[in-house]
Simulated assay, not measured.
Amino acid sequence: MNTSLWWWLIPVVLFFWAVGAYNRLVRLRAAVGKAFAVFDEQLVRQVVWIQGCLPEAMRGGLQTSPIELDDPVTAAWARLHATSDQVVVALAKLRGHPMDGAGMAALVLAHEAMRTAWAGALAEAIAEDAVPSAQRLQERWMRLLHQSLPLRAAFNEAVQSYNQGIGQFPAWLLARVFGFKPAGALARLAEPR
């Protein structure tokens, strides 16, 4: 075979391989974004439900004085309100960058704080004869958490596929050139306990 043909054939093959590999990385990154969007929707449902459980006076925003926070019931509701706002802020930051590892860690911490505040609100702020009862509210909360488990798993699978894709040779060369960075997974978020 003529050597000049090889000099043309090799760059053409490399070019088409590079285009295919780049498109695969873009598809993997898009799959992470789509999986996060679905999971984000479920987390928003959790936050809306939590905020709907707040007393009427706190639903428009936290309007308590320091003296009122000395009351354990008001303090429990205030913690729940503040932590649900933290989840909202963490989600808002991740919507534009769903693969940000530090943002995912912040979301996990905010969600854990909200779950802890929810448990505190059930214990401190809901009377035993309340309708609905603390037990019924906890059952509903657990259902919301269970509904998010398969969505979290789908997101983590998409992240794992993406991270494997950008780590494989020779695609990692393209990943470095075009700035594909590893994505952060959601380790414990939304696990019922």
Rank of each mutant, 00 (worst) to 15 (best):
P55K: 02
A78N: 01
R95P: 00
D100K: 09
G96Y: 05
G61V: 11
D71I: 05
T83R: 09
A82E: 05
D100S: 12
D70T: 09
R45H: 10
L80F: 06
V87L: 08
A76G: 08
D71L: 03
V48I: 15
L69H: 04
M99G: 14
L94F: 14
P55M: 09
S65N: 10
L62S: 04
A92C: 09
R79H: 13
C53I: 05
A102L: 09
G101D: 08
T74D: 09
T74C: 07
Q63A: 14
G101A: 15
P72G: 07
V73H: 01
A76T: 04
Q86W: 05
S65C: 08
G52E: 13
G52H: 13
S65D: 06
L91F: 08
R95K: 12
E68R: 06
T83N: 12
T64W: 02
Q46I: 12
T64N: 02
D70L: 09
A82F: 02
I50P: 01
R95N: 07
E56I: 04
V73R: 11
I67K: 08
A78R: 00
W49D: 05
G60T: 08
D70W: 01
R45I: 03
T64L: 14
R79C: 00
R95T: 00
Q51M: 00
D100I: 06
V87F: 08
D100G: 03
L80T: 02
T83Y: 02
A90V: 07
A82D: 07
G52Y: 12
G61L: 10
A78Y: 01
G101Y: 00
V48T: 15
I50C: 14
P66M: 01
Q86R: 14
Q51I: 04
S84D: 11
P72A: 09
R45D: 12
H81D: 13
P72H: 12
G60K: 02
Q46E: 11
V87M: 06
R95D: 04
V73C: 00
M99C: 05
Q51H: 04
M58G: 01
